[in-house]
Design a binder for these strands. Structure first.
Lengths: 153, 153
DNA sequence: CATAGTATCTCGCCGAGCGAGACACTCGTT
DNA sequence: AACGAGTGTCTCGCTCGGCGAGATACTATG
């Protein structure tokens, strides 16, 4: 970005990666708008679907921490999702201060329409790679994550 | 957060890629907050720095289209950036309806503090790859972009 | 010229998210 | 058992980013 030297492999890759993240953001934004969801609501839905998939108990507090929202903002997100029928709130019988969040079938279906085809295509793409290619791609992604993590402080 | 053991290589890669984009978003958000910028202002700044780097003339209209903001919102973004000294507005002498946007030295420096180290590390990482590995990574990124583009409609 | 088209800005409004605080509940201490 | 501290969630009032509508200034075309 701050380097003008054209066509060094490293810079080309940086550019490709950045373009890809921008495209993914645009895709998410387009999907959100088409389904009358705010970007934050979509992020929340993704987090809740993840939790449901891994069997983790989701609560407003956890969600708010994940989305970097304070409690008031979290309540507002949940109100919107509940109003749109993507979410059910139930009191935790073991700790009656807590609220358990349950995504509805409708929300799961919505998530599948969004992620399903893209994931399927990506899996097909990855399955078409040779073992060496797969190793290179996975190594790159892993290295990038630790690298980004090191710059977040 | 949700590092479950994904069964197939394809899914594992999908997960890694998604985690990476989330981490990059978090990095950007953290940087924005530390510099008293709104996420949109940072996106605008990135777009303007890109334009400056490629020698493209930046105008409010172009920027607004890129950021998916209407004209009122675009004006507000530019007001904020100008107020913070990241931007100068000048009338285009050839078409006096238009306003030309010029990032200040301060903004360029800010961009370098943000992107510089991360880009340098990424370039170093990519430079350390064998030609075959590099080809695999670039091929993957390119394929993903066309794949995402196909799903955006 | 007049008229249509274009680039930008202003005004009034909506609503996402914040800070402060209320309320309900749990838990350790006494 | 009763109290206080700590925790999870929600309510209230507010700020301010972004939108729709329209004003303003300029260019292009007949």
């Amino acid at each position: 970005m701050t380097d003008q030297l054209p066509d060094r492999p490293g810079l080309r890759t940086v550019h490709q990666l950045r373009a890809l993240t921008v495209d993914l953001d645009l895709l998410a934004a387009a999907f959100a708008q088409r389904n009358r969801l705010h970007p934050t609501d979509l992020r929340a839905l993704i987090a809740l679907l993840d939790a449901a998939r891994t069997g983790t108990a989701a609560t407003p507090g956890l969600l708010g921490r994940e989305l970097r929202l304070n409690s008031a903002g979290t309540t507002a997100v949940l109100d919107r999702l509940e109003r749109h029928g993507h979410l059910r709130r139930t009191r935790d019988p073991h700790d009656r201060r807590r609220v358990l969040l349950e995504v509805t079938e409708q929300a799961v279906a919505l998530g599948e329409t969004f992620f399903g085809p893209l994931i399927a295509d990506t899996v097909a793409l990855v399955d078409g790679l040779s073992p060496a290619e797969l190793a290179a791609v996975e190594g790159f992604l892993t290295s990038m994550r630790t690298l980004v993590a090191r710059h977040t402080d």
